[in-house]
């Protein structure tokens, strides 16, 4: 059952990822991307990484993609209104995509796919308390720095949204 579930999730992930690229309507692209995130979260669950799966859904599917959808709605992007890309942009896009493919192939060419050893594998590795121990002991400083960065971003948005003295919008 585990195997077939893996193949199903991998199939959904790849198919919806292709859908993101090939969909004509930006709205459909965004929805396919959300589906891709769900498939990836399914993979995390199969690796027993519950925290990662939940956070992936909350942050990517729940917040970032809502903003993507928001922008698509606001700009009213449609297949009809999309201007044709110039030839130069197409060539540049093809070259950039090709380079990425090249780098990925070069990086993955010599990888020896080893599965986890069933005897020594720690099934609790993805649990929240394990993750917390690693984050707050081994990687305390980078973790705290990242937290401060997020806090600054959030406080910054509040400050930008605050009404200036004497300003009136109504």
């Amino acid at each position: 059952m585990g195997n077939s579930l893996f193949y199903f999730l991998a199939f959904v992930a790849l198919l919806s990822a292709l859908g993101v690229v090939f969909a004509k309507n930006p709205m459909h692209s965004v929805l396919f991307l959300i589906l891709t995130f769900f498939a990836i979260s399914g993979h995390y669950l199969m690796l027993n990484a519950q925290f990662l799966a939940a956070v992936n859904i909350i942050v990517y599917a729940g917040a970032i993609m809502v903003l993507f959808l928001f922008v698509v709605m606001f700009l009213n992007l449609n297949a009809d209104t999309e201007p044709n890309k110039s030839g130069l942009a197409k060539v540049a896009g093809a070259i950039a995509g090709g380079m990425l493919l090249l780098v990925l192939i070069a990086a993955l060419r010599n990888v020896n796919p080893v599965g986890a050893d069933a005897a020594s594998f720690d099934s609790q590795i993805g649990m929240v308390n394990r993750l917390g121990l690693v984050l707050y002991r081994q990687y305390l400083v980078p973790f705290e720095l990242a937290s401060v960065l997020f806090l600054v971003a959030m406080v910054g948005s509040v400050m930008l949204g605050k009404r200036e003295a004497g300003e009136r919008n109504f």
Binding site: A54, I57, A61, G62
Partner: peptide, 10 residues
């Protein structure tokens, strides 16, 4: 708790 929060955000 994260599950509920995730579903709410969807």
């Amino acid at each position: 708790m994260l599950y509920v929060f995730g579903v709410v955000s969807l």
